[in-house]
């Protein structure tokens, strides 16, 4: 009988978890800067950050491939530091996913930072608390819904990516063959059964995550507004 290979799922969940975790750190820093600083350059940064939303993933994938390969700027640097290739490796996929899903984290977080009343932050400052402590104890707890939105959207977006993954990662089992690529491969090799099973699981997984998001968002709204 037909055996289902779960490796692509593990890989996808691993990729999405690591990507989301990194994005959370990067997103908090970037969004904090964007929300509380007004420079002319911010407009340019925000436009750049939104690029992955409108660019065809293959365009992004193409440029990342060029940057990441052995001769590429980032690829060479990475090779020097870690003695490892970036393209066609899991790490490369992580870096590409972080870039690809960046707007999914930065947009909700920036909105979240802006929704926290300024005088809460000033109150914390006058109570002797540093920027960092204010961030952790006052700002972040009062934008839980935005953080959750960012996490869920980044995770889902990473799970769903294909174009970038296929360009930068190729299709290597256990390394870069994520579910979306596995579905494509299965269809290509006329293995519709596997494709069906993967696709259905992905469908319900996405639906349930979004359901949970909407549910929690409703529940947390009052605190975010206060």
């Amino acid at each position: 009988m037909h055996e289902i290979n779960w490796l692509p799922f593990w890989l996808t969940i691993k990729l999405a978890s690591i990507t989301t975790f990194l994005l959370l750190l990067i997103g908090i820093l970037l969004s904090y800067y964007l929300a509380y600083n007004r420079h002319k350059i911010n407009t340019i940064i925000e436009a750049l950050l939104s690029l992955p939303l409108v660019l065809p993933p293959t365009v992004l994938g193409f440029y990342l491939l060029i940057l990441f390969n052995k001769q590429g700027l980032i690829g060479t640097l990475w090779y020097k530091i870690f003695n490892k290739q970036l393209v066609f490796h899991f790490e490369g996929l992580v870096v590409a996913s972080v870039i690809y899903s960046l707007p999914m984290m930065v947009h909700p977080l920036t909105a979240g930072f802006r929704s926290v009343p300024k005088n809460l932050i000033e109150a914390s400052f006058t109570l002797g608390k540093s920027r960092l402590e204010t961030l952790i104890r006052v700002i972040l707890p009062n934008m839980k819904a935005s953080i959750l939105t960012g996490i869920v959207l980044s995770f889902a977006h990473t799970v769903g990516e294909f174009g970038v993954a296929v360009m930068v990662g190729g299709n290597i089992e256990g390394e870069t063959r994520v579910v979306s690529i596995a579905i494509y491969s299965a269809v290509e090799s006329m293995d519709y059964k596997t494709a069906h099973i993967y696709a259905l699981i992905l469908f319900f997984m996405s639906f349930l995550t979004l359901l949970a998001l909407y549910f929690l968002n409703k529940k947390w709204k009052p605190y975010d507004k206060a």
Binding site: I172, E175, S185
Partner: peptide, 20 residues
Amino acid sequence: VELIFGSSGKGAAQIKAGAP
């Protein structure tokens, strides 16, 4: 043994780009 299938041209290009 792990098999990855695709066009020969794509494979050659990926190997040049450092595919493992």
